[in-house]
Design a protein around this nucleic acid. Structure first.
Lengths: 226, 226
DNA sequence: GCTATTGATGACCGGCCGGTCATTTGTGTA
DNA sequence: TACACAAATGACCGGCCGGTCATCAATAGC
């Protein structure tokens, strides 16, 4: 798994590139435990001891792999984001799909997945703790937000060029495609299980309406200016 | 001001309804200071002493008006929400507007205002701290979210009944109208001032696209089934 | 001016928690 | 069995912070 090596790179604390021996799933163990703990109680309220106990190790060991609690936090964020980022990149390469197909297919699937996955927790953590970790926020922006928006914008432009979409403000604000996802994440994080939202259906509906607004229907032959 | 008395009701700590004397702007003073402090550092990281200092009072006095730090937090949330809630209610009564006019007018104005106002901070706090305060979250849902969505749904239905809008999934998910607002709030809270988003323009554009998708254009006379 | 009452203070306390480190346990080598 | 060294432990420490309370200050009534 590349993801594994990636995590290692992140968590790398070992003196040099000479970490042999088998007890090397420790960092991931700890990261998983930390993700769960942070998800439940947030960063500040989570006790390092709790994370250690969840991971089935001692506090001392944890500090052998992560210099500080904050360092651990960053590792958690990155461990969730990086694999997902990779998955996204793969799909984008598929230029065999029209823009509409891409948005209704891979993108919709991705968007629906987010509110279910650990990414949900991640997003809430970024909103809650982001301002306290400027460097992490900067990293997140560059690697997740900017990249994601660029991809979406490219897709839209492809659609416009191909005559699928009319020109519209969505070219300026691909954020529109993300808004329902963020909304779903927040709703789920804050209100479930008390007030459930069918995020699958909601996200699809929202996307569909936007597509309807910008799609050019194959009209009964009436030469325009294109 | 009703808002003032409202705040008093909330912060009410005074033994009985016999709080005379003039030093009664204290609670609001403290609440304002607390809002600022929470906005900057979040709930946990904010020191009670800081709030007191900002308010220009001693820590002891603060505890004379608010039993605990958490109690103060709740008072802050409510002090921001309640006035805004009232303002919203007023506008909804204006049935002289068509649905489209209402959405393009008062609602758009309201939506644009949120990312600028203290409500922005409030929303971030609710996302970040909500899970730790279930009773507060429940209150927020009932008084803000449920009410707000009900209003929007009613507007949409009015539009459908009046033949302005076709039937669509937006009737099931008035959340669509809120999503861009939430998105703007989160973006601003997390990324500004490093990466600015023209929230005014974005929110309007998003809303406009949705309206386009559901609006029935006055077609050149062609009797349908309505 | 005197006193009762309430507004206001800030030193202090108790507990907690991030982080350390001296020590122990386990593993591989010979 | 013995040795070396890495993995792992958890008691401990120092500082911090929410909350208390003995005390003081200002005002009102007389």
């Amino acid at each position: 798994m590349t993801a594994e090596s990636v995590i290692w790179t992140i968590a790398a604390i070992m003196p040099k590139p000479k970490f042999r021996r088998r007890k090397n799933e420790r960092p991931q163990q700890i990261i998983r435990a930390a993700l769960a703990a942070f998800a439940e109680k947030g960063f500040d309220a989570t006790r390092v001891t709790d994370v250690a106990r969840r991971a089935g190790v001692s506090k001392g060991l944890l500090y052998l792999y992560f210099r500080t609690k904050e360092e651990l936090f960053k590792a958690v964020i990155k461990s969730v984001v990086l694999p997902r980022l990779e998955a996204l990149s793969v799909n984008v390469a598929r230029t065999d799909l029209t823009a509409t197909e891409f948005l209704r297919g891979p993108y919709l699937e991705f968007a629906r997945e987010v509110p279910r996955s650990p990414a949900r927790v991640l997003v809430r953590l970024m909103i809650a703790e982001g301002p306290k970790h400027p460097d992490l926020t900067a990293w997140y922006w560059e690697n997740v937000v900017a990249r994601g928006l660029a991809i979406l914008r490219r897709i839209i432009e492809r659609g416009v060029a191909a005559g699928e979409f009319r020109r519209s403000t969505i070219e300026d604000y691909p954020q529109m495609l993300v808004a329902p996802v963020l909304f779903s994440v927040v709703w789920t994080s804050v209100f479930s299980p008390h007030h459930i939202l069918d995020t699958d259906h909601y996200i699809e509906s929202h996307l569909e309406l936007l597509l309807e607004a910008i799609s050019i229907k194959p009209q009964p032959e009436k030469a325009g200016k294109s």
